[in-house]
Amino acid sequence: MNLIERLNQDMKTAMKNKEKTTLSVIRMVRSSIKNKEIELKQPLTEEEALDVVTKELKQQRDSLQEFEQAGREDLAQKARDEIAVLEKYMPEQLTEAELKKIVQEAIASTGATSKADMGKVMKAVMPRVKGRADGKWVNRLVQEGLQ
């Protein structure tokens, strides 16, 4: 079952079980997917749909950080709940050891030696970890690897 079919199936289940948060998050993601399909004038591939979910997850994480800094625990908890729902649709996340290995391979294959080569390394790493690791985490590991 692909991502879009899973979203549709889970939306029906959430409606039946009266899970408001899950239903709201799934509707938001489906809306974003539909907008992207309209923008591209074609149905999304599995990878493009995953990109939409990843973007929504990143936005929720950014919101969570802002809510916590502002001391809005009510909104922060709502964001945490929405993040938990979105994470169910993401592929299994890489471990730190797996990610470090990918970063080291990319540094070796690009011949990067300093932080000036960071763009080359990130360009090599990101397609390999798409949806399985947070970009900020990858960025930090690349910086550590280039020191």
Rank of each mutant, 00 (worst) to 15 (best):
E19D: 09
Y89G: 05
E46F: 14
D134M: 01
M1I: 03
K36G: 00
Q147P: 08
K34E: 03
L23Y: 06
L86G: 02
D62L: 11
L44K: 11
E56V: 11
F67D: 11
E73D: 12
W137D: 15
S31L: 04
K120R: 06
S114M: 06
D134W: 00
T95F: 04
Q9V: 09
K34M: 12
L57M: 08
V142A: 07
K115E: 12
I26M: 05
A108W: 08
L7E: 07
Q104E: 08
M126S: 08
K34Y: 14
A14W: 07
I4H: 09
M126T: 12
K41E: 07
D10K: 12
D81V: 05
Y89S: 03
I83Y: 03
K100E: 15
Q77A: 15
A49W: 09
T110Q: 05
M1Y: 10
R140C: 13
E82F: 06
A84C: 03
G119A: 10
E19Q: 10
W137E: 15
Q42T: 13
K58M: 02
A97F: 07
K12E: 13
K101D: 15
Q77S: 08
R30A: 01
W137V: 12
S109M: 13
G71V: 07
L23K: 05
E144T: 02
G119C: 04
L57S: 00
V25Y: 03
K101T: 12
K120S: 09
